[in-house]
Design a protein around this nucleic acid. Sequence first.
DNA 1: CGGCATAACGAACACCGTTCGCGAAGGAGA
DNA 2: TCTCCTTCGCGAACGGTGTTCGTTATGCCG
Lengths: 238, 238
Amino acid sequence: MEVVGVEAGWPRSRPVAQRRVLSQDLIVDTALELLGKGSLDTVSMRRVAHELGTGPASLYAHVSNKEELHELMLDRLLGRLPRPEPDPGSWTEQIVEMARAQLKMLTSYPGIARVGLETIVPAGPNALAYGEAVLAVLRAGGLPDRVAVLAFDTLSLWCAAFAFELGAAKTGETGPDEIAARGKEIGAYMAARPTQFPNMLGLGHILSEATPEERFEFGLDVFLAGLVGAFQPRRNSM
Amino acid sequence: MEVVGVEAGWPRSRPVAQRRVLSQDLIVDTALELLGKGSLDTVSMRRVAHELGTGPASLYAHVSNKEELHELMLDRLLGRLPRPEPDPGSWTEQIVEMARAQLKMLTSYPGIARVGLETIVPAGPNALAYGEAVLAVLRAGGLPDRVAVLAFDTLSLWCAAFAFELGAAKTGETGPDEIAARGKEIGAYMAARPTQFPNMLGLGHILSEATPEERFEFGLDVFLAGLVGAFQPRRNSM
DNA sequence: CGGCATAACGAACACCGTTCGCGAAGGAGA
DNA sequence: TCTCCTTCGCGAACGGTGTTCGTTATGCCG
């Protein structure tokens, strides 16, 4: 005996919309989700659209192009960064903490650092607010205005660059095995020419043994030391 | 009276080759030429092949893939950088000059900086030789070994990052007019919210007025000042 | 209800990197 | 010189990309 399903729908005051409703926020959210799981290359318009159950052309009613999508994504993420209240007594520690938070965010979304590097003038509300926060901390340290601004510039670039490199290592074509193999090849190449590589042969291992955090913080610490040594007003307590 | 052309060819000891002969050097040269005139995006396998009067598939007998082509290009360029004889008395000046030369090279070929950032382990002969040269200068300054190696790391990244940003500004989608327009929008946005942007509003112009060279050298100088202040042995002459 | 504006969408365009299979070319050996 | 083998050069094709154009569907307003 066959049972035929009964498709009786309840009467509705309004027919259900047949089209999917999109929004810029939804698109950015979806793209960020994809980015968190993959890389910038996996965030194609087609993939984002597919995740949303539609086609890529539908996205263009909400974002002008892929580049704008990237910038929206970056701004969203910048909005998540902590913005401390500036403290003149511990401004360098604050800068270090902010840089760490930035690096962590940038590396959690592989490829977003590249967007940061490629975005000539970050103009989103969060980017501006975050820039204001960094600048406020730098100025709290008593640095001359021009120095504070250029330091902000340098620190931003340092974080983005470092994250870019880490991101490339994480998502690029060169896996850990190949990196190790390359290291061996390089070692053998140089060992066969010891007079050409007196420094690299003895010290090359230092770099491969350093952790990303060590490398990042070295650059940061030395830069901040230079800032303090050259530009920060003297304090009687020191 | 019709004159029929006579196609009498001279006898040859060997028939003329009908195929174009390619080589890795030729492909790299061609790609670099395209890069010097455009950007990394314009250096497609199809374009390189077209310049060589063939099809993209022909390139794969000489380069494994596009990534390898990129690395070969980078190594070629690194081979053009000057490698000074280390001088303990002026090592910081030497580092600055090397950084300037690197930046100049990287910005002459828009996009190659990105290759530098994306190449996890630069393994070409020129990359190794150049690294050796930088490291030798840093060590000539009397820096501890680990510091010299990490400084080399930092300086490389700084140059590549800065060049990347300059390259993006030069070849990206955001032209000078749009950059200026954005600056205006940002200014207006912040001016409408003065209590939110007390620092940016007064100082934002400093950044837009600074030249790329000023920005680059600021980061470099401060970093070197930090290196010298923290790690270089004291000299009686100072 | 009809008109209008806008969002959603499919088809198509022009590009991309790469692989596969075939033919051409060159070198080595008999 | 001829034959065999290897490698290079190449076209076709695959699976992908961002974007535009024209059409349809939807919602809002008068």
